[in-house]
């Protein structure tokens, strides 16, 4: 027995409200991120990821306030991502009570932000989010590139090489989302998951495409991921976190029950 594989529900939050909606049968307010985070905490989620998609600057203050309220009530690790651009943004979120901050586009524009923030706050709280999309094979080998703007804009950066570079700069964890699979419910893109988990020493969270519990199992057993992140299968009550854990445990995966 040893370290458990983690299950991480993800909340997409805009102006302090969960945007994709959550259908717990007995929840009072399906859009309140604090109430939803508490619910996942009670269900035995191993961590919670909070993805802020607020565009406006004013909305950001709401986000900070929401993070503060979650941190007062939820005693499992909380990762906050979305719109993190500077060391000050990271400090603001950590001070609000986030345990980890996820950096995505800002790392592409300024890779040094990863090094600087890891040195300042410690690698343990710096997650680099990678949005990868499969592109044309090279010499018969599959290749994945980093895309920005929700998967619309290619960067030309090789996703595996990028993960290695981010780890070298001090990232403590990689949050890998397949843009080919995100929202499809067809399962993780296992090729890129395996390629990146094999290439880096740091933990990798697989994300994008979960539609059933076998997908979670595949992400761990075939993709080699250390944690699996899912949103809709939990939000819409298709599965609970304990159901997912029991399913994974029955397939020989070590989980925290």
């Amino acid at each position: 027995m040893g370290l458990a594989k983690r299950i991480i529900p993800c909340l997409d939050v805009e102006n302090g409200r969960v945007v994709k909606g959550v259908n717990f049968v007995d929840i009072r307010d399906a859009g309140d991120p604090v109430e939803i985070a508490i619910r996942y905490n009670e269900q035995g989620a191993d961590e919670i990821t909070f993805l802020d998609i607020t565009a406006s600057h004013e909305g950001r203050d709401t986000t900070v306030h929401t993070v503060e309220k979650i941190a007062e009530e939820v005693f499992i690790p909380l990762t906050v991502g979305g719109g993190i651009r500077t060391v000050d943004d990271i400090r603001t979120m950590l001070n609000a009570g986030a345990d980890k901050v996820s950096i995505n586009t800002a790392a592409i524009h300024n890779p040094d932000l990863v090094r600087e923030s890891a040195e300042r706050f410690g690698s343990q709280c710096i997650v680099v989010a990678i949005d990868a999309k499969r592109v044309a094979d090279v010499d018969g080998q599959p290749r994945w590139e980093i895309f920005t703007h929700g998967g619309r804009k290619p960067t030309g950066i090789d996703a595996v090489a990028w993960a290695v570079r981010m780890a070298a700069l001090g990232a403590g964890e990689i949050l890998l989302t397949s843009m080919d699979r995100d929202g499809t419910k067809n399962g993780f893109e296992l090729g890129v998951t395996r390629a990146i988990t094999d290439a880096v020493e740091i933990p990798v969270i697989a994300s994008g495409g979960v539609g059933n519990l076998d997908h979670l199992v595949d992400g761990i057993l075939l993709g080699g991921a250390d944690a699996v992140l899912a949103a809709s299968i939990f939000h819409f009550g298709e599965y609970t976190v304990p159901e997912a854990k029991a399913y994974m445990a029955a397939r020989g995966i070590e989980v925290r029950l």
């Binding site: 027995m1 040893g2 370290l3 458990a4 983690r6 020493e201 740091i202 933990p203 250390d226 925290r256």
Partner: peptide, 17 residues
């Protein structure tokens, strides 16, 4: 390396017994 020869990630991150 773990007891079954598997590679273990560093940092040690998550829930352990």
């Amino acid at each position: 390396v773990g007891s079954q020869g598997e590679r273990l990630k560093v940092p040690h991150m998550g829930w352990n017994e």
